[in-house]
Design a binder for these strands. Structure first.
Lengths: 243, 243
DNA sequence: GTGCAGAAATTGGTTGGACCATTGAACCAC
DNA sequence: GTGGTTCAATGGTCCAACCAATTTCTGCAC
């Protein structure tokens, strides 16, 4: 019986400010790194209090869209558009070994799917980019005797980016962040990541061959080796995780 | 040459407020739905301006952790802890339909993995809980002629929770928020979700039978039907998404 | 006592104005 | 050039007041 009657919009000052600001950014074609108008100017032009402007900007800052530098100004940190969608993700806990394994299970799910999607959707340019990152990684691996975590990460990022779905990259970035609370010296395992090395190339080969299921299978193998490394490391310290 | 010198941390008033508030929540063991102290009280107790308190709360509100109701108070919307990690996901430029498809690809990856893990790890109690949610859903489906989105969601939540990895639920919860903008009248498809109905039970059966790969397969089928529904809906409106 | 309308208190939302702290540019000795 | 100094611009914080929505209390009618 009840037809869907959307609640009427009485006030939403700060939302309105953000909408106006998003429009302004598009109007002026501002990109990341560029400077936004002053809070005082925005307040004056939009006919709202400076405090309201600040609350609006605080929202964007919390979303990582904008960076405020005292004494300098407010700068765009990412591309903003009037029709973007936000899905705040907050991850609780996960500072211990169990948390590390938890992130790895997410990686297994997403990495496999992304590799498969990538095999279907990656364009020529993306494929070339992935191969470039792969070469860089292999070179770093040879040169620095196995310490190639940075290049390793960039390779995976390139795959996620080529999956055609930006959420993959963003979610995995969150996992990576959690990983990094540990990863500096992961569990004392010196050759951490060595075992996973060869699978990077096999994943790329399957993607280049447009073989989704093959790519998925290779990605799963890679994660399995990392998992093994982690478990091996856990056995090494057994007792050090008592909080 | 340059040793890594991390930037020095001077002040961060509102961050400090949030830290204190998170500590307070843990101290008092507050859960979702419960009321936080007044802005005025927080300002007085923490010896900061009410304005600063507001900026801090605005951050949490933007992250979906808290809900403010004018004239009533500020209420917890999710569990908060002092060590949470925030990673706002932003989908740029995509209209709602594209966003929906993007979240669905994440769901496909995670739902399949979670179902498989669940088949391996779910205990007796978790299994019973899942079955209870399943029964509730099926009952609602019969009674309300297909409108069972709330119970549907609770079923999936129960599966995620039983996967033994809290990250699954946390990530999918972020996706779900976006889903909810549509779920009311998703794309004008009247019988949206009907097709996925039978797979809920088959998923449960595979889990109960401790058959990880079977559970994964059924979960994939479910997502496939949802995807079809969505595409069908998209065809229905084709022209209405020109902004 | 019960029920309900209106008053009063509570609480988040907004405003305007003031001052502080940091930044960066211009300027000035050396 | 190098290194200070000054100074204006800008974000950060504070205060005091008022607005708007909500909740609670009060008192009257029955």
């Amino acid at each position: 019986m009840t037809d869907f009657l959307p609640p009427i919009q009485t006030t939403a000052r700060d939302d309105a400010v953000l909408k106006a600001l998003a429009g302004f950014v598009r109007q002026e074609a501002l990109g990341p790194g560029e400077k936004l108008p002053t809070e005082r100017i925005l307040a004056e032009r939009l006919k709202v209090s400076r405090n309201t402007v600040r609350e609006a900007l605080t929202r964007w800052e919390g979303l990582g869209l904008v960076e405020r530098r005292q004494g300098s100004g407010t700068y765009l940190k990412a591309a903003v558009s009037p029709d973007m969608l936000h899905m705040p993700l907050t991850l609780a806990g996960g500072n211990d070994f169990a948390g590390l394994m938890a992130t790895l299970e997410i990686r297994r799910a997403l990495e496999a799917e992304a590799a498969a999607l990538c095999a279907i959707r990656a364009g020529k340019a993306e494929l070339a980019e992935i191969e470039r990152k792969l070469d860089l990684m292999e070179e770093a691996f040879q040169t620095r005797a196995g310490m190639s975590s940075e290049e390793d990460w960039e390779f995976h990022q390139a795959v996620f980016r080529a999956s055609g779905n930006p959420l993959f990259e963003q979610i995995i970035a969150a996992m990576y962040e959690m990983f990094h609370r540990f990863w500096e010296h992961p569990l004392g395992v010196r050759d951490f990541g060595h075992a996973s090395f060869p699978y990077h190339r096999t994943i790329f080969e399957r993607i280049a061959a447009r073989d989704p299921e093959g790519a998925r299978a290779e990605a799963l193998k890679l994660i399995a080796t990392v998992e093994d490394d982690l478990k091996r490391g856990a056995a090494n310290l057994k007792l050090s995780d008592r909080r």
